[in-house]
């Protein structure tokens, strides 16, 4: 069998990803999510006792709450098909990864299904985030 021929022919017919459209869409959706986050931040700044430094936490929590509703009603994955990284990179994507795993594995029971699989997708983010932060914090402590 001629693998080289297969690869040249396959390369010719591989439909290109619509790069420009994907970028524009992820810019718009990502931007809208962040701008919406800013609106929530301003809301918390005005009406609750949060300063600019601490307002990030309630904003993130609110966004994840909205993500839960969108994920639960099965809308989030439809938006994500259009938005691409625009819905993945904001913290809503992290929330969606956790919530989607939790909902999907509900059918295997709460302990081993939901409990065992809830970080199936988001686990890598937490693992590498924590490990990299640990190393960086150590380096910074040693250097200063």
């Amino acid at each position: 069998m001629n693998n080289k021929l297969f690869h040249t022919v396959a390369e010719k017919h591989n439909p290109p990803r619509p790069l420009l459209k994907n970028c524009v869409m992820s810019f718009i959706f990502g931007g809208v999510i962040c701008a919406f986050g800013q609106c929530i931040s301003l809301f918390y700044l005005y009406f609750f006792d949060f300063s600019e430094e601490t307002v990030g936490d309630p904003t993130v929590a609110t966004l994840i709450l909205i993500t839960m509703l969108l994920t639960g009603f099965g809308v989030y994955d439809k938006i994500a098909q259009i938005a691409g990284a625009g819905t993945m990179v904001p913290v809503t994507g992290f929330g969606n990864a956790v919530i989607a795993s939790a909902i999907e594995h509900k059918s295997e029971g709460y302990v081993l299904g939901v409990g065992g699989n809830i970080f199936k997708l988001a686990g890598s983010v937490i693992l590498f985030g924590v490990f990299a932060s640990f190393v960086i914090a150590l380096i910074k402590l040693i250097l200063t």
Partner: peptide
């Protein structure tokens, strides 16, 4: 609905003269 929500938030925020 999202647009309306944004607009409403804006109106509330800007009303603090």
């Amino acid at each position: 609905r999202f647009l309306y929500l944004c607009l409403a938030t804006l109106v509330i925020l800007t009303s603090c003269a």
